[in-house]
Simulated assay, not measured.
Amino acid sequence: MALVGFLAVAAFYLIAEHRAHLLGWLPLLIFLACPLLHVFMHGRHGGHGNQSIQPSSGWRQPPHEH
């Protein structure tokens, strides 16, 4: 518990003293997160393009159920 408290206080002071430096990097970090979000979010629905066209491998999507 003491270590967690110490780390919380240290994090508070680091953020408080270096806020200008951290906020200066924020736009760049958001821009760099775009490729990661693109990769992980497109993995759910199969990527770009028309979804009605089936891949040539013969794979078929299961029917949608409610």
Rank of each mutant, 00 (worst) to 15 (best):
M1S: 13
A2T: 09
A2D: 08
A2K: 11
L3I: 11
L3P: 04
V4N: 12
V4L: 14
G5S: 09
G5M: 08
G5T: 08
G5V: 03
F6Y: 12
L7W: 08
A8S: 06
A8K: 04
V9N: 05
V9M: 10
V9H: 07
V9Q: 08
V9C: 07
A10I: 02
A10G: 03
A10N: 03
A10F: 03
A11D: 02
F12M: 01
F12R: 02
F12N: 01
F12I: 02
F12C: 03
Y13V: 12
Y13H: 05
Y13N: 07
L14H: 07
A16H: 07
A16M: 02
E17K: 13
E17W: 13
E17C: 11
E17Q: 13
H18F: 05
H18P: 00
H18Q: 09
H18R: 11
R19A: 13
R19N: 12
R19V: 11
R19F: 13
H21D: 15
H21N: 14
H21A: 15
H21I: 15
L22Y: 14
L22C: 01
L22A: 05
L22V: 05
L23I: 06
L23N: 06
G24V: 02
W25K: 07
W25H: 14
W25T: 10
P27S: 00
P27E: 00
P27M: 00
P27H: 01
P27T: 01
P27W: 00
L29P: 04
L29W: 07
L29E: 08
I30R: 03
F31V: 14
F31E: 05
C34V: 15
L37Q: 04
L37K: 03
H38G: 13
V39K: 09
V39Q: 04
V39E: 06
F40M: 10
F40D: 06
F40T: 10
M41K: 06
H42P: 04
H42S: 10
R44T: 11
R44N: 08
H45R: 12
G46M: 01
G47T: 00
G47W: 00
H48D: 13
H48T: 14
H48F: 15
G49N: 01
N50Q: 05
Q51C: 09
S52T: 11
S52V: 08
I53Y: 08
I53M: 04
I53S: 03
Q54P: 10
S56H: 10
S56I: 13
S56L: 12
S56C: 06
S57R: 03
G58I: 00
G58V: 01
W59H: 03
H64F: 15
H64M: 15
H64D: 14
H64T: 15
E65A: 12
E65I: 13
H66M: 14
